[in-house]
């Protein structure tokens, strides 16, 4: 291939209502994947003694499932302000490189469109936006639309879990939990750029994450080590192949 597959879009990046709507519609299948996870967070919040208002406030303004799960696991009364904040930071720091990777779109946005879109950024919207970008998409509204759709379904499923309390018991290991893995797998399919580009990096990412998980490293570490080992290898292969001077 003569042209690198990920050349930034030539056309101007825009932000339209149609793009937001397209993203929102694209997020709907993911709602199935949110359901078991959101319900678990709602049930757990109730079990830890959080009121409905407190649970909704946390879910609405934190909007980060893995971090909420970790914070709720260590929740005490009175609330562990410092511990919950630190645990959340450790889990969510993985999102810092996402905004940077989306720069080709975000660089064209200003004001609330930029900082509001960033507030809705989650793993799914990030991956789907990158896939859309690579396919030549240039409507940054798509990213916000997915984020909003996931946010709404997240708040709704957590509310369901809190209100349902004991009625909706989803035990760990229930096959419904496969829904979130299924969502991640279906997102991975359009991200695949062929064995030559992604084969080794993806293999290494999975193996390192698995090894770190087996070594019982705490929650975000297997994820962070795996993704950076894979992405680092991919970058190294790419730059070496290009014979690009000037990288240290």
């Amino acid at each position: 291939m003569a042209i690198p597959p990920r050349a930034p879009p030539r056309q101007r990046v825009v932000f339209t209502r149609i793009g937001v709507r397209r993203g929102f519609v694209a997020s709907i299948p993911l709602w199935i994947g949110m359901l078991p996870f959101g319900v678990v967070i709602g049930v757990l919040s109730a079990a830890k003694g959080l009121s409905f208002a407190e649970t909704m406030l946390m879910t609405t303004i934190v909007f980060a499932g893995a971090a909420q799960l970790v914070a709720l696991e260590l929740w005490t009364d009175p609330a562990p302000i410092l511990a919950a904040t630190i645990a959340t930071l450790v889990v969510n720091i993985r999102m810092a490189p996402m905004g940077a990777a989306l720069a080709p779109w975000l660089d064209r946005l200003r004001g609330w469109k930029l900082w509001g879109t960033l507030a809705t950024l989650v793993d799914h919207s990030f991956a789907m936006a990158v896939a859309d970008q690579r396919a030549g998409g240039r409507d940054a509204g798509y990213l916000l639309g997915i984020g909003l759709g996931i946010w709404i379904s997240w708040v709704a499923t957590v509310a369901l879990g809190h209100l349902g309390g004991g009625m909706l018991r989803v035990p760990p290991g229930h096959p419904l939990f496969f829904a979130s893995i299924a969502a991640f797998l279906s997102i991975l399919v359009p991200l695949w750029r062929g064995a030559r580009v992604d084969g080794l990096p993806w293999l290494v990412a999975g193996l390192v994450a698995l090894a770190a998980h087996r070594a019982a490293l705490p929650v975000p570490l297997p994820l962070l080590l795996g993704s950076f080992a894979g992405a680092g290898l991919g970058a190294w292969i790419e730059l070496r192949g290009r014979g690009m001077p000037g990288w240290k």
């Binding site: 990096p201 390192v208 992405a231 680092g232 991919g234 970058a235 790419e238 730059l239 000037g246």
Partner: peptide
């Protein structure tokens, strides 16, 4: 350039590390 290339590889690797 290395960091830019790394960021391009991050999405796929992140989800693989998630699901494995």
């Amino acid at each position: 350039p290395f960091v830019q290339a790394l960021l391009r590889h991050l999405p796929g690797c992140l989800f693989v590390a998630y699901v494995t």
